[in-house]
Design a protein around this nucleic acid. Structure first.
Lengths: 196, 196, 196, 196
DNA sequence: CATGAATGAGGCTTCATTCAT
DNA sequence: CATGAATGAAGCCTCATTCAT
């Protein structure tokens, strides 16, 4: 991926996440990236495909980093903490990507599950699910079988982050992260941990 | 609200929730409602305002019904169960409204918190928050103070419902509802209930 | 067909025939017709379809008038004279239509023979062919069987008219018509008439 | 003319004649010729001029060959047969060139008669005209004086060839050629030959 | 109240042409 | 000579909105 393409992606991510996909024109993206409109079409066949490119690119980064962090551990509880912690961390550090990846196109991602655009996102979800299952098998977690429990967890923390980020407040990102994780620990994790 | 206006709202809700706000044209709405385009403008000044109308209308129904159900009880735990149960129930019975109210415009609702359009939604959230606080004060719940805990709960169940609804499966709405509530009960509620 | 649609057709015929299909923009057509661009799309789904509309409309007029003139006669020789005379006459009176119908899109018409757009043109050609065949059967004409003889005749007079019209000269339309018919009479017709 | 330039011409002729001038992009031509877009501009200042180059190039070949064939004879009747026979023969052997030279740009050629691009085509027509005139002067042909008789003849055979070529049929090129010439012989030539 | 033809700004996309390598 | 990434003007088309009936 060369510099021009990176500029396009960066510009599009910024605008899509703040102004929205439909209210961002290709010209806006070009201007913001300081290139010509036509140039975008050298890299992406359409606005739709540019959005797809953003998905692939962003989700690849997120997935890669989370997989890396998970390598070091094998305890499901620790793994669950890591996948949530890292997701929140990445989201707060790249709010643009967060908005697009975890907020805007939930619906779309599900509807197009077989589309390669969402491969990484789907792998991310599978990863989450497998952690939960392993935790249950290992007798560390206890919760009713449910296909979409991990999606619920994603909805939980992302909704909290979204409000925290959009509501004017004096909290720093670090505080937001810590408070959210603390809440997660003392509600969901507490609820599913097996008592010893 | 006369019949014509109801037809407009019904048509717009259907289309916005399935096709999306931007991909639905005013003409589509008019055709679907079997009226003329111009007629819509007798009731709503703009497409934007029509969307606002949908919010107000839908959220009023949801809020009214939930308030009614809550009147009969005062135990915070029971109240929490009711607000979630009813929300899920209404969502599954009116998927169109659910998509718009709980999925599509999360972002928008927060950004326009002072806009009267979102009065009902905001009141709904306040209601949820107050239940949680009361539960804590009454010593029934135990969890770290967090401004957006209830938003997290909304994100939790709505993400689960969304996936359940969009993923092709053989589950009935009743099953979806029961499984989701069961999961909620055995994770979050279990996690915050005080053992005595 | 209402006034607006007529204005659109008229404007498009003029511009397509003089400037050419590709060098005429939809905005040009709208300006020339003194309407808004969008209005064109109320009547024609695309520029392509507008061209199709012109074909249908123009060829319908030509075909109708020629059929009318042919009703009064049954002698193949006279019929052949009439179909050529009338075609030339109409062409000279409506050069725009002539350019489009008999010059510009010969290629296209053949390639899309089954497309309803060219129904009238194809019927016109069939009519011409049937006259030639009847003349031969009646022993009035004598020529080698050939599927495309009538097309050859069309090419003959239309090429002559085209040059006459485009070359700067002092000839009136009446003169052009008479000279062309005279030439046709004394070359092709003379060549195929049976001497008795 | 080097190899690169020939590749450009060949590619452009193919594409212009099949897809059309406007629907062929410079990139298409470059891709088809397996060169870079920029290279075309080393040989032709613009797309327009490339088209001009095609005219000049193709018509030069046609004209040269026909002149060569005509050298051997002086009888106007034979010469007329040769110019038509050779034109048809070349057309069928190079349908691409035929489409461009004899079908597509009739209109353009006339309008730009003074443009050097069309020198060869115009010389070709002059040649045809002079044959007809000489035949008349020699008492071999008899027909009314007409500036554009030869254009009519061109329209005659080219229209027949065009239909024959585009209509799906089982005729070989040889058959098409023979049938067309036979028809020409027994209609126009028969019509203008002086009986002795 | 209701209609739907008309409007025209603005968006997405193409493509002839340039120019630094 | 050759390349092909970059340019940006211009075209087709959509659609929210208006207004005369």
């Amino acid at each position: 991926m060369n510099e021009t393409q990176k500029k396009i992606l960066k510009s599009a991510i910024t605008l899509f996440s703040t102004v929205g996909f439909f209210d961002t024109s290709m010209k806006d993206i070009a201007n913001n990236a300081k290139i010509a409109v036509g140039t975008i079409y050298l890299y992406y066949k359409s606005k739709e495909e540019l959005l797809g490119g953003i998905y692939k690119y962003s989700s690849a980064i997120v997935l890669k980093r989370i997989k890396l962090k998970l390598k070091k551990v094998s305890d499901p509880l620790e793994m669950l903490r890591i996948i949530v912690t890292e997701s929140i961390d990445l989201s707060l550090k790249n709010l643009d990507v967060f908005m697009i990846l975890f907020v805007d196109h939930k619906k779309m991602a599900i509807k197009n599950e077989n589309n390669s655009t969402f491969n990484n996102i789907n792998e991310y979800i599978k990863l989450g699910k497998s952690i939960l299952i392993k935790g249950k098998e290992d007798g560390i977690f206890d919760f009713p079988d449910h296909e979409n429990f991990f999606s619920g967890i994603m909805g939980f923390w992302s909704s909290i982050i979204l409000r925290a980020v959009l509501t004017p407040s004096k909290l720093t990102n670090k505080q937001i992260k810590e408070e959210t994780l603390n809440l997660f620990e003392n509600t969901i994790i507490k609820g599913i941990r097996c008592n010893k």
